[in-house]
Design a protein around this nucleic acid. Structure first.
Lengths: 256, 256
DNA sequence: GAACGCAATAGTGTAGACACTTTCTTGACG
DNA sequence: CGTCAAGAAAGTGTCTACACTATTGCGTTC
Protein backbone atom coordinates (compact mmCIF):
# COMPACT_ATOMS: atom_id res chain seq x y z
CA UNK A 1 0.00 0.00 0.00
CA UNK A 2 2.28 2.73 1.17
CA UNK A 3 5.73 2.50 -0.23
CA UNK A 4 7.48 4.95 1.99
CA UNK A 5 7.82 2.40 4.73
CA UNK A 6 11.37 1.40 3.88
CA UNK A 7 12.76 3.54 6.62
CA UNK A 8 13.55 0.49 8.72
CA UNK A 9 15.60 -1.10 5.97
CA UNK A 10 18.72 0.89 6.55
CA UNK A 11 18.88 -0.02 10.18
CA UNK A 12 21.21 -3.03 10.38
CA UNK A 13 21.41 -2.88 14.14
CA UNK A 14 17.87 -4.03 14.64
CA UNK A 15 17.56 -6.16 11.56
CA UNK A 16 18.28 -9.46 13.25
CA UNK A 17 16.04 -8.94 16.24
CA UNK A 18 12.77 -7.70 14.91
CA UNK A 19 10.67 -10.74 14.20
CA UNK A 20 7.69 -10.79 16.50
CA UNK A 21 5.35 -8.59 14.56
CA UNK A 22 2.09 -7.22 15.84
CA UNK A 23 -0.51 -8.26 13.38
CA UNK A 24 -3.13 -5.63 14.21
CA UNK A 25 -5.98 -7.76 13.04
CA UNK A 26 -6.80 -9.74 16.13
CA UNK A 27 -10.35 -8.48 16.10
CA UNK A 28 -10.87 -9.57 12.54
CA UNK A 29 -9.44 -13.00 13.17
CA UNK A 30 -11.42 -13.35 16.37
CA UNK A 31 -14.54 -12.41 14.46
CA UNK A 32 -13.97 -15.04 11.82
CA UNK A 33 -12.99 -17.71 14.27
CA UNK A 34 -15.90 -17.15 16.61
CA UNK A 35 -18.32 -17.00 13.73
CA UNK A 36 -17.04 -20.31 12.54
CA UNK A 37 -17.47 -21.76 16.03
CA UNK A 38 -21.05 -20.56 15.96
CA UNK A 39 -21.80 -21.79 12.48
CA UNK A 40 -20.39 -25.21 13.23
CA UNK A 41 -22.25 -25.53 16.50
CA UNK A 42 -19.05 -25.80 18.49
CA UNK A 43 -20.58 -23.07 20.58
CA UNK A 44 -24.03 -24.41 21.20
CA UNK A 45 -27.29 -22.48 21.01
CA UNK A 46 -28.30 -20.92 24.31
CA UNK A 47 -24.84 -21.35 25.75
CA UNK A 48 -23.18 -18.56 27.64
CA UNK A 49 -19.97 -17.39 26.06
CA UNK A 50 -17.06 -17.20 28.44
CA UNK A 51 -14.82 -14.39 27.27
CA UNK A 52 -11.82 -15.38 29.35
CA UNK A 53 -11.91 -18.94 28.12
CA UNK A 54 -12.36 -17.85 24.51
CA UNK A 55 -9.56 -15.35 24.71
CA UNK A 56 -7.25 -17.98 26.11
CA UNK A 57 -8.11 -20.48 23.41
CA UNK A 58 -7.65 -17.90 20.66
CA UNK A 59 -4.46 -16.57 22.18
CA UNK A 60 -5.55 -12.95 22.35
CA UNK A 61 -6.85 -10.71 25.08
CA UNK A 62 -10.49 -10.08 25.82
CA UNK A 63 -10.58 -6.77 23.97
CA UNK A 64 -10.63 -8.13 20.40
CA UNK A 65 -12.92 -10.91 21.57
CA UNK A 66 -15.41 -8.38 22.82
CA UNK A 67 -15.15 -6.30 19.66
CA UNK A 68 -15.90 -9.38 17.61
CA UNK A 69 -18.80 -10.34 19.85
CA UNK A 70 -20.30 -6.89 19.55
CA UNK A 71 -20.28 -7.20 15.80
CA UNK A 72 -21.76 -10.67 16.00
CA UNK A 73 -24.45 -9.32 18.28
CA UNK A 74 -25.42 -6.71 15.70
CA UNK A 75 -25.65 -9.45 13.12
CA UNK A 76 -27.92 -11.60 15.23
CA UNK A 77 -25.54 -14.44 16.00
CA UNK A 78 -25.32 -13.75 19.70
CA UNK A 79 -27.18 -11.65 22.21
CA UNK A 80 -25.91 -9.50 25.01
CA UNK A 81 -27.52 -9.16 28.42
CA UNK A 82 -26.01 -6.54 30.71
CA UNK A 83 -23.60 -7.79 33.32
CA UNK A 84 -24.21 -11.35 32.28
CA UNK A 85 -22.41 -11.37 28.99
CA UNK A 86 -22.92 -12.81 25.55
CA UNK A 87 -25.06 -15.82 24.77
CA UNK A 88 -25.22 -17.92 21.65
CA UNK A 89 -28.54 -17.08 20.16
CA UNK A 90 -30.60 -20.17 19.83
CA UNK A 91 -32.12 -20.69 16.44
CA UNK A 92 -35.41 -22.47 16.71
CA UNK A 93 -37.02 -24.18 13.76
CA UNK A 94 -39.37 -21.26 13.66
CA UNK A 95 -36.56 -18.75 13.60
CA UNK A 96 -35.02 -20.62 10.73
CA UNK A 97 -38.23 -20.48 8.76
CA UNK A 98 -38.36 -16.74 9.35
CA UNK A 99 -34.88 -16.41 7.95
CA UNK A 100 -35.68 -18.50 4.91
CA UNK A 101 -38.75 -16.40 4.36
CA UNK A 102 -36.69 -13.25 4.50
CA UNK A 103 -34.24 -14.79 2.11
CA UNK A 104 -37.00 -15.61 -0.30
CA UNK A 105 -38.28 -12.05 -0.15
CA UNK A 106 -34.87 -10.55 -0.80
CA UNK A 107 -34.00 -12.92 -3.60
CA UNK A 108 -37.26 -12.57 -5.44
CA UNK A 109 -37.02 -8.82 -5.30
CA UNK A 110 -33.44 -8.99 -6.50
CA UNK A 111 -34.41 -11.19 -9.40
CA UNK A 112 -37.10 -8.81 -10.47
CA UNK A 113 -34.80 -5.82 -10.30
CA UNK A 114 -32.17 -7.72 -12.22
CA UNK A 115 -34.64 -8.42 -15.00
CA UNK A 116 -35.54 -4.76 -15.16
CA UNK A 117 -32.12 -3.23 -14.98
CA UNK A 118 -29.23 -5.50 -15.76
CA UNK A 119 -27.29 -5.23 -19.00
CA UNK A 120 -27.45 -8.17 -21.34
CA UNK A 121 -23.80 -8.79 -20.66
CA UNK A 122 -24.48 -9.04 -16.97
CA UNK A 123 -27.26 -11.54 -17.44
CA UNK A 124 -24.82 -13.44 -19.53
CA UNK A 125 -22.38 -13.49 -16.67
CA UNK A 126 -25.01 -15.28 -14.63
CA UNK A 127 -25.54 -17.78 -17.40
CA UNK A 128 -21.82 -18.36 -17.71
CA UNK A 129 -21.38 -18.73 -13.97
CA UNK A 130 -23.95 -21.46 -13.87
CA UNK A 131 -22.82 -23.23 -17.02
CA UNK A 132 -19.29 -23.35 -15.73
CA UNK A 133 -20.28 -25.27 -12.63
CA UNK A 134 -23.43 -27.13 -13.57
CA UNK A 135 -21.72 -30.20 -14.93
CA UNK A 136 -19.81 -31.39 -11.93
CA UNK A 137 -22.10 -29.61 -9.51
CA UNK A 138 -23.36 -32.51 -7.46
CA UNK A 139 -20.05 -34.36 -7.38
CA UNK A 140 -18.23 -31.69 -5.40
CA UNK A 141 -17.56 -31.68 -1.71
CA UNK A 142 -20.41 -30.18 0.34
CA UNK A 143 -18.45 -27.04 1.11
CA UNK A 144 -17.84 -26.44 -2.57
CA UNK A 145 -21.45 -27.02 -3.48
CA UNK A 146 -22.51 -24.64 -0.77
CA UNK A 147 -20.11 -21.94 -1.92
CA UNK A 148 -21.18 -22.32 -5.53
CA UNK A 149 -24.82 -22.19 -4.58
CA UNK A 150 -24.36 -19.11 -2.46
CA UNK A 151 -22.34 -17.55 -5.24
CA UNK A 152 -25.15 -18.15 -7.69
CA UNK A 153 -27.77 -16.50 -5.55
CA UNK A 154 -25.45 -13.71 -4.54
CA UNK A 155 -24.69 -12.95 -8.15
CA UNK A 156 -28.38 -12.38 -8.77
CA UNK A 157 -28.41 -9.94 -5.89
CA UNK A 158 -25.41 -8.14 -7.36
CA UNK A 159 -27.04 -7.87 -10.75
CA UNK A 160 -30.02 -6.21 -9.10
CA UNK A 161 -27.79 -3.17 -8.89
CA UNK A 162 -28.70 -2.59 -5.27
CA UNK A 163 -25.74 -3.21 -2.96
CA UNK A 164 -28.01 -3.23 0.07
CA UNK A 165 -29.60 -6.41 -1.20
CA UNK A 166 -26.19 -8.00 -1.52
CA UNK A 167 -25.36 -7.08 2.03
CA UNK A 168 -28.63 -8.41 3.37
CA UNK A 169 -28.36 -11.65 1.52
CA UNK A 170 -24.77 -12.19 2.64
CA UNK A 171 -25.79 -11.67 6.20
CA UNK A 172 -28.71 -14.08 5.92
CA UNK A 173 -26.54 -16.66 4.21
CA UNK A 174 -24.03 -16.57 7.02
CA UNK A 175 -26.73 -17.21 9.55
CA UNK A 176 -28.26 -20.18 7.79
CA UNK A 177 -25.08 -21.59 6.36
CA UNK A 178 -24.76 -24.32 8.95
CA UNK A 179 -28.14 -25.73 8.13
CA UNK A 180 -27.68 -25.45 4.40
CA UNK A 181 -24.48 -27.38 4.77
CA UNK A 182 -26.25 -30.08 6.73
CA UNK A 183 -28.98 -30.20 4.17
CA UNK A 184 -26.53 -30.63 1.33
CA UNK A 185 -24.98 -33.62 3.05
CA UNK A 186 -28.39 -35.07 3.80
CA UNK A 187 -29.83 -37.65 1.40
CA UNK A 188 -32.73 -35.32 0.70
CA UNK A 189 -30.42 -33.14 -1.39
CA UNK A 190 -31.36 -34.12 -4.86
CA UNK A 191 -31.09 -33.27 -8.47
CA UNK A 192 -34.15 -31.08 -8.53
CA UNK A 193 -32.07 -28.25 -7.17
CA UNK A 194 -29.83 -28.35 -10.19
CA UNK A 195 -32.74 -28.17 -12.60
CA UNK A 196 -34.15 -25.32 -10.54
CA UNK A 197 -31.04 -23.27 -11.08
CA UNK A 198 -31.04 -23.99 -14.77
CA UNK A 199 -34.66 -22.93 -15.05
CA UNK A 200 -33.94 -19.76 -13.13
CA UNK A 201 -31.12 -18.90 -15.48
CA UNK A 202 -33.41 -19.50 -18.44
CA UNK A 203 -36.00 -17.14 -16.98
CA UNK A 204 -33.31 -14.54 -16.39
CA UNK A 205 -32.14 -14.73 -19.98
CA UNK A 206 -35.71 -14.21 -21.11
CA UNK A 207 -36.07 -11.52 -18.46
CA UNK A 208 -39.21 -13.20 -17.34
CA UNK A 209 -39.44 -11.71 -13.88
CA UNK A 210 -42.75 -13.29 -12.92
CA UNK A 211 -41.76 -16.78 -13.80
CA UNK A 212 -38.27 -16.40 -12.34
CA UNK A 213 -39.63 -15.21 -9.03
CA UNK A 214 -42.03 -18.10 -8.95
CA UNK A 215 -39.19 -20.52 -9.63
CA UNK A 216 -37.02 -18.94 -6.98
CA UNK A 217 -39.77 -19.02 -4.42
CA UNK A 218 -40.44 -22.64 -5.15
CA UNK A 219 -36.75 -23.42 -5.16
CA UNK A 220 -36.34 -21.96 -1.70
CA UNK A 221 -39.53 -23.49 -0.38
CA UNK A 222 -38.41 -26.83 -1.62
CA UNK A 223 -35.12 -26.38 0.12
CA UNK A 224 -36.92 -25.47 3.31
CA UNK A 225 -39.12 -28.50 3.35
CA UNK A 226 -36.21 -30.74 2.45
CA UNK A 227 -34.39 -29.11 5.31
CA UNK A 228 -36.99 -29.82 7.94
CA UNK A 229 -35.91 -33.36 8.64
CA UNK A 230 -32.25 -32.55 8.21
CA UNK A 231 -32.67 -29.86 10.83
CA UNK A 232 -34.22 -32.21 13.32
CA UNK A 233 -31.45 -34.71 12.80
CA UNK A 234 -28.89 -31.99 13.24
CA UNK A 235 -30.39 -30.73 16.46
CA UNK A 236 -30.51 -34.23 17.82
CA UNK A 237 -26.85 -34.59 17.03
CA UNK A 238 -25.95 -31.31 18.69
CA UNK A 239 -27.78 -32.10 21.87
CA UNK A 240 -26.44 -35.58 21.85
CA UNK A 241 -27.19 -38.00 24.66
CA UNK A 242 -24.73 -37.31 27.41
CA UNK A 243 -25.08 -33.58 27.52
CA UNK A 244 -28.77 -33.65 26.91
CA UNK A 245 -29.22 -31.73 30.13
CA UNK A 246 -28.30 -28.62 28.20
CA UNK A 247 -31.74 -28.58 26.73
CA UNK A 248 -33.42 -27.62 29.96
CA UNK A 249 -30.59 -25.79 31.60
CA UNK A 250 -31.93 -22.39 30.76
CA UNK A 251 -33.83 -20.72 33.51
CA UNK A 252 -34.81 -17.53 31.83
CA UNK A 253 -35.46 -17.88 28.16
CA UNK A 254 -33.73 -14.83 26.82
CA UNK A 255 -34.10 -13.92 23.22
CA UNK A 256 -33.24 -10.92 21.27
CA UNK B 1 -11.04 11.42 39.16
CA UNK B 2 -11.57 8.12 40.91
CA UNK B 3 -9.57 7.46 44.03
CA UNK B 4 -7.89 4.20 44.62
CA UNK B 5 -9.11 3.72 48.20
CA UNK B 6 -6.73 0.80 48.67
CA UNK B 7 -9.42 -1.43 47.24
CA UNK B 8 -9.92 -3.34 50.46
CA UNK B 9 -13.31 -4.08 51.85
CA UNK B 10 -12.51 -3.37 55.50
CA UNK B 11 -12.20 0.33 55.02
CA UNK B 12 -15.03 2.09 56.84
CA UNK B 13 -13.21 5.39 56.86
CA UNK B 14 -13.96 6.09 53.22
CA UNK B 15 -17.46 4.72 53.25
CA UNK B 16 -19.16 8.09 53.24
CA UNK B 17 -17.36 9.26 50.14
CA UNK B 18 -18.87 6.69 47.79
CA UNK B 19 -19.91 7.92 44.39
CA UNK B 20 -22.53 5.66 42.85
CA UNK B 21 -21.51 6.32 39.29
CA UNK B 22 -20.90 2.76 38.18
CA UNK B 23 -23.75 2.29 35.78
CA UNK B 24 -22.18 -0.43 33.63
CA UNK B 25 -23.82 0.75 30.46
CA UNK B 26 -21.25 3.08 29.00
CA UNK B 27 -21.19 1.11 25.79
CA UNK B 28 -24.92 1.33 25.40
CA UNK B 29 -24.98 5.05 26.06
CA UNK B 30 -22.03 5.58 23.77
CA UNK B 31 -23.84 3.66 21.08
CA UNK B 32 -26.96 5.76 21.37
CA UNK B 33 -25.08 9.02 21.58
CA UNK B 34 -22.84 8.32 18.62
CA UNK B 35 -25.73 7.10 16.57
CA UNK B 36 -27.53 10.31 17.28
CA UNK B 37 -24.47 12.29 16.25
CA UNK B 38 -24.47 10.38 12.99
CA UNK B 39 -28.17 10.70 12.35
CA UNK B 40 -28.10 14.41 13.01
CA UNK B 41 -25.07 14.97 10.81
CA UNK B 42 -23.03 16.30 13.69
CA UNK B 43 -20.50 13.79 12.54
CA UNK B 44 -20.35 14.46 8.85
CA UNK B 45 -20.29 11.89 6.06
CA UNK B 46 -16.80 10.84 5.07
CA UNK B 47 -15.31 12.28 8.22
CA UNK B 48 -12.79 10.35 10.20
CA UNK B 49 -13.91 9.57 13.73
CA UNK B 50 -11.41 10.48 16.38
CA UNK B 51 -11.82 8.02 19.23
CA UNK B 52 -9.86 10.00 21.76
CA UNK B 53 -11.82 13.15 21.12
CA UNK B 54 -15.11 11.29 21.23
CA UNK B 55 -14.23 9.53 24.44
CA UNK B 56 -13.31 12.81 26.05
CA UNK B 57 -16.52 14.49 25.00
CA UNK B 58 -18.62 11.55 26.21
CA UNK B 59 -16.67 11.26 29.43
CA UNK B 60 -15.79 7.59 29.04
CA UNK B 61 -12.73 5.69 27.95
CA UNK B 62 -12.06 4.50 24.45
CA UNK B 63 -13.14 0.95 25.18
CA UNK B 64 -16.91 1.52 25.19
CA UNK B 65 -16.50 3.94 22.29
CA UNK B 66 -14.88 1.25 20.23
CA UNK B 67 -17.51 -1.32 21.18
CA UNK B 68 -20.21 1.08 20.05
CA UNK B 69 -18.37 1.83 16.82
CA UNK B 70 -18.02 -1.85 16.05
CA UNK B 71 -21.74 -2.29 16.36
CA UNK B 72 -22.37 0.76 14.22
CA UNK B 73 -20.00 -0.66 11.64
CA UNK B 74 -22.03 -3.86 11.44
CA UNK B 75 -25.12 -1.80 10.93
CA UNK B 76 -23.64 0.21 8.11
CA UNK B 77 -23.39 3.58 9.80
CA UNK B 78 -19.62 3.70 9.81
CA UNK B 79 -16.81 1.80 8.15
CA UNK B 80 -13.53 0.57 9.52
CA UNK B 81 -10.23 0.62 7.70
CA UNK B 82 -7.34 -1.11 9.44
CA UNK B 83 -4.92 1.10 11.32
CA UNK B 84 -6.76 4.18 10.17
CA UNK B 85 -9.89 3.86 12.22
CA UNK B 86 -13.59 4.46 11.77
CA UNK B 87 -15.10 6.74 9.16
CA UNK B 88 -18.60 8.10 8.89
CA UNK B 89 -20.05 6.28 5.97
CA UNK B 90 -21.19 8.76 3.45
CA UNK B 91 -24.65 8.24 2.14
CA UNK B 92 -24.91 9.33 -1.43
CA UNK B 93 -28.23 10.06 -3.06
CA UNK B 94 -27.84 6.76 -4.78
CA UNK B 95 -27.23 4.92 -1.55
CA UNK B 96 -30.32 6.47 -0.13
CA UNK B 97 -32.40 5.30 -3.04
CA UNK B 98 -31.06 1.81 -2.51
CA UNK B 99 -32.17 1.94 1.10
CA UNK B 100 -35.61 3.19 0.21
CA UNK B 101 -35.89 0.44 -2.34
CA UNK B 102 -34.98 -2.14 0.27
CA UNK B 103 -37.50 -0.60 2.60
CA UNK B 104 -40.18 -0.87 -0.02
CA UNK B 105 -39.35 -4.51 -0.60
CA UNK B 106 -39.48 -5.38 3.09
CA UNK B 107 -42.66 -3.44 3.76
CA UNK B 108 -44.58 -4.81 0.81
CA UNK B 109 -43.64 -8.34 1.76
CA UNK B 110 -44.64 -7.65 5.34
CA UNK B 111 -47.99 -6.31 4.26
CA UNK B 112 -48.68 -9.36 2.18
CA UNK B 113 -47.77 -11.71 4.99
CA UNK B 114 -49.89 -9.71 7.38
CA UNK B 115 -52.89 -10.09 5.11
CA UNK B 116 -52.35 -13.82 4.94
CA UNK B 117 -51.65 -14.55 8.56
CA UNK B 118 -52.72 -11.90 11.03
CA UNK B 119 -55.71 -12.39 13.29
CA UNK B 120 -58.62 -10.06 12.79
CA UNK B 121 -57.90 -8.56 16.18
CA UNK B 122 -54.37 -7.75 15.10
CA UNK B 123 -55.50 -6.03 11.96
CA UNK B 124 -57.81 -4.11 14.18
CA UNK B 125 -54.88 -2.99 16.27
CA UNK B 126 -53.42 -1.44 13.16
CA UNK B 127 -56.66 0.33 12.43
CA UNK B 128 -56.89 1.60 15.99
CA UNK B 129 -53.28 2.73 15.98
CA UNK B 130 -53.88 4.86 12.94
CA UNK B 131 -57.26 6.18 14.00
CA UNK B 132 -55.82 7.28 17.29
CA UNK B 133 -53.25 9.52 15.67
CA UNK B 134 -54.74 10.48 12.33
CA UNK B 135 -56.59 13.51 13.54
CA UNK B 136 -53.81 15.61 14.90
CA UNK B 137 -51.21 13.89 12.76
CA UNK B 138 -49.88 16.81 10.79
CA UNK B 139 -49.99 19.29 13.64
CA UNK B 140 -47.42 17.49 15.75
CA UNK B 141 -43.77 18.31 16.06
CA UNK B 142 -41.62 16.69 13.36
CA UNK B 143 -40.10 14.24 15.79
CA UNK B 144 -43.53 13.06 16.86
CA UNK B 145 -44.75 12.69 13.31
CA UNK B 146 -41.67 10.72 12.47
CA UNK B 147 -42.09 8.40 15.44
CA UNK B 148 -45.75 7.86 14.67
CA UNK B 149 -45.03 7.17 11.04
CA UNK B 150 -42.28 4.71 11.88
CA UNK B 151 -44.56 3.09 14.41
CA UNK B 152 -47.23 2.62 11.80
CA UNK B 153 -44.96 0.90 9.34
CA UNK B 154 -43.25 -1.09 12.04
CA UNK B 155 -46.58 -2.37 13.28
CA UNK B 156 -47.28 -3.79 9.85
CA UNK B 157 -43.95 -5.58 10.02
CA UNK B 158 -44.84 -6.96 13.42
CA UNK B 159 -48.19 -8.21 12.22
CA UNK B 160 -46.43 -10.09 9.46
CA UNK B 161 -45.45 -12.52 12.19
CA UNK B 162 -41.84 -12.58 11.08
CA UNK B 163 -39.55 -10.93 13.62
CA UNK B 164 -36.72 -10.78 11.12
CA UNK B 165 -38.71 -8.32 9.07
CA UNK B 166 -39.16 -6.15 12.12
CA UNK B 167 -35.44 -6.17 12.77
CA UNK B 168 -34.60 -5.34 9.19
CA UNK B 169 -37.07 -2.51 9.01
CA UNK B 170 -35.89 -1.04 12.29
CA UNK B 171 -32.36 -1.05 11.05
CA UNK B 172 -33.30 0.58 7.78
CA UNK B 173 -35.39 3.18 9.55
CA UNK B 174 -32.49 4.16 11.74
CA UNK B 175 -30.30 4.69 8.73
CA UNK B 176 -32.74 6.88 6.84
CA UNK B 177 -34.24 8.62 9.83
CA UNK B 178 -32.25 11.79 9.36
CA UNK B 179 -33.54 12.29 5.87
CA UNK B 180 -37.11 11.42 6.76
CA UNK B 181 -36.95 14.01 9.46
CA UNK B 182 -35.71 16.60 7.03
CA UNK B 183 -38.40 15.68 4.58
CA UNK B 184 -41.10 16.06 7.19
CA UNK B 185 -39.93 19.56 7.96
CA UNK B 186 -39.70 20.40 4.30
CA UNK B 187 -42.66 22.15 2.62
CA UNK B 188 -43.03 19.16 0.32
CA UNK B 189 -44.48 17.15 3.17
CA UNK B 190 -48.13 17.21 2.41
CA UNK B 191 -51.47 15.74 3.16
CA UNK B 192 -51.23 13.01 0.59
CA UNK B 193 -49.21 10.98 3.04
CA UNK B 194 -52.06 10.97 5.49
CA UNK B 195 -54.54 9.73 2.92
CA UNK B 196 -52.01 7.10 1.90
CA UNK B 197 -51.93 5.69 5.38
CA UNK B 198 -55.68 5.64 5.60
CA UNK B 199 -55.93 3.84 2.30
CA UNK B 200 -53.36 1.31 3.42
CA UNK B 201 -55.33 0.62 6.57
CA UNK B 202 -58.46 0.14 4.51
CA UNK B 203 -56.69 -2.37 2.29
CA UNK B 204 -55.44 -4.18 5.36
CA UNK B 205 -58.93 -4.46 6.81
CA UNK B 206 -60.11 -5.92 3.54
CA UNK B 207 -56.97 -8.06 3.46
CA UNK B 208 -56.43 -6.90 -0.06
CA UNK B 209 -52.73 -7.71 -0.34
CA UNK B 210 -52.32 -6.72 -3.96
CA UNK B 211 -53.85 -3.31 -3.58
CA UNK B 212 -52.15 -2.68 -0.25
CA UNK B 213 -48.74 -3.48 -1.66
CA UNK B 214 -49.40 -1.19 -4.57
CA UNK B 215 -50.41 1.60 -2.20
CA UNK B 216 -47.37 1.04 -0.03
CA UNK B 217 -45.04 1.04 -2.98
CA UNK B 218 -46.56 4.25 -4.26
CA UNK B 219 -46.51 5.75 -0.80
CA UNK B 220 -42.81 5.10 -0.46
CA UNK B 221 -42.04 6.16 -4.00
CA UNK B 222 -43.90 9.37 -3.42
CA UNK B 223 -41.89 9.95 -0.29
CA UNK B 224 -38.70 9.32 -2.19
CA UNK B 225 -39.43 11.77 -4.92
CA UNK B 226 -40.64 14.35 -2.42
CA UNK B 227 -37.39 13.74 -0.60
CA UNK B 228 -35.13 14.41 -3.54
CA UNK B 229 -35.19 18.16 -3.25
CA UNK B 230 -35.20 18.04 0.53
CA UNK B 231 -32.10 15.90 0.38
CA UNK B 232 -30.27 18.32 -1.86
CA UNK B 233 -31.15 21.19 0.43
CA UNK B 234 -29.99 19.21 3.42
CA UNK B 235 -26.67 18.29 1.87
CA UNK B 236 -26.08 21.89 0.94
CA UNK B 237 -26.73 22.87 4.51
CA UNK B 238 -24.41 20.21 5.89
CA UNK B 239 -21.57 21.03 3.56
CA UNK B 240 -22.08 24.68 4.14
CA UNK B 241 -20.06 27.23 2.17
CA UNK B 242 -16.62 27.22 3.71
CA UNK B 243 -15.98 23.50 3.73
CA UNK B 244 -17.73 22.72 0.50
CA UNK B 245 -14.70 20.88 -0.78
CA UNK B 246 -15.80 17.89 1.26
CA UNK B 247 -18.34 16.93 -1.34
CA UNK B 248 -15.84 15.40 -3.69
CA UNK B 249 -13.51 13.95 -1.12
CA UNK B 250 -14.84 10.41 -1.49
CA UNK B 251 -12.21 8.23 -3.01
CA UNK B 252 -13.20 4.69 -2.23
CA UNK B 253 -16.62 3.75 -1.04
CA UNK B 254 -16.08 1.17 1.63
CA UNK B 255 -18.70 -1.10 3.02
CA UNK B 256 -18.90 -3.69 5.70
C1' DG C 1 -34.74 -31.06 55.77
C1' DA C 2 -35.85 -26.72 53.25
C1' DA C 3 -35.44 -21.74 53.00
C1' DC C 4 -32.46 -18.07 53.80
C1' DG C 5 -28.60 -15.29 54.28
C1' DC C 6 -23.61 -14.64 53.60
C1' DA C 7 -18.98 -15.33 52.23
C1' DA C 8 -16.09 -16.99 48.33
C1' DT C 9 -15.59 -17.40 43.48
C1' DA C 10 -16.08 -16.52 38.74
C1' DG C 11 -16.94 -13.33 35.15
C1' DT C 12 -18.20 -8.89 32.97
C1' DG C 13 -17.45 -3.71 32.07
C1' DT C 14 -14.29 -0.04 31.78
C1' DA C 15 -10.02 2.44 32.40
C1' DG C 16 -5.40 3.30 31.41
C1' DA C 17 -0.90 1.97 29.45
C1' DC C 18 1.92 0.87 25.76
C1' DA C 19 3.39 -0.74 21.08
C1' DC C 20 2.81 0.08 16.49
C1' DT C 21 1.13 2.84 12.33
C1' DT C 22 -0.12 6.74 10.02
C1' DT C 23 0.13 11.60 9.40
C1' DC C 24 2.25 15.96 9.93
C1' DT C 25 6.35 18.97 10.20
C1' DT C 26 10.74 20.41 9.23
C1' DG C 27 14.96 20.88 7.03
C1' DA C 28 18.47 19.29 3.62
C1' DC C 29 19.33 18.54 -1.18
C1' DG C 30 18.44 18.70 -6.36
C1' DC D 1 10.66 26.10 -5.53
C1' DG D 2 9.80 21.23 -5.32
C1' DT D 3 10.98 16.62 -3.61
C1' DC D 4 12.08 13.73 -0.31
C1' DA D 5 13.59 11.82 4.10
C1' DA D 6 13.81 11.65 8.91
C1' DG D 7 11.94 12.81 13.23
C1' DA D 8 7.81 14.39 15.96
C1' DA D 9 3.08 14.16 16.84
C1' DA D 10 -1.27 12.08 16.62
C1' DG D 11 -4.05 8.10 16.57
C1' DT D 12 -5.27 3.22 16.47
C1' DG D 13 -5.00 -1.76 18.21
C1' DT D 14 -4.34 -4.62 22.01
C1' DC D 15 -3.08 -5.88 26.67
C1' DT D 16 -3.45 -5.83 31.62
C1' DA D 17 -5.53 -4.34 35.79
C1' DC D 18 -9.19 -3.60 38.66
C1' DA D 19 -14.00 -2.31 40.19
C1' DC D 20 -18.33 -4.10 40.08
C1' DT D 21 -22.01 -7.76 39.38
C1' DA D 22 -23.77 -12.38 39.25
C1' DT D 23 -23.37 -17.04 40.81
C1' DT D 24 -22.12 -20.70 43.58
C1' DG D 25 -21.45 -23.13 47.80
C1' DC D 26 -21.76 -23.41 52.67
C1' DG D 27 -23.49 -22.83 57.20
C1' DT D 28 -27.43 -21.25 60.04
C1' DT D 29 -32.09 -21.01 61.42
C1' DC D 30 -36.73 -22.54 61.73
Amino acid sequence: MTERAESTDNDPLLAGEVDMRRTADSSERAYNTIRKLLVEFTLKPGERINEVQLSRSLGVSRTPIREALNRLASEGFVSLTPNRGFFVRSLSTEGLLDLYELRSIIECAAFKLMCERAEDSEIDRLRQYWEAIVDGYRDQAPDIILAEDEGFHLLIAELSGNPELVGQLSSINARIRFIRRIQIEHPSHDKAQVTSHSAIVAAAVKRDAENGMKLLREHIEMTVSATQQALKDALLKVFAPGNGADLKRRRRARDT
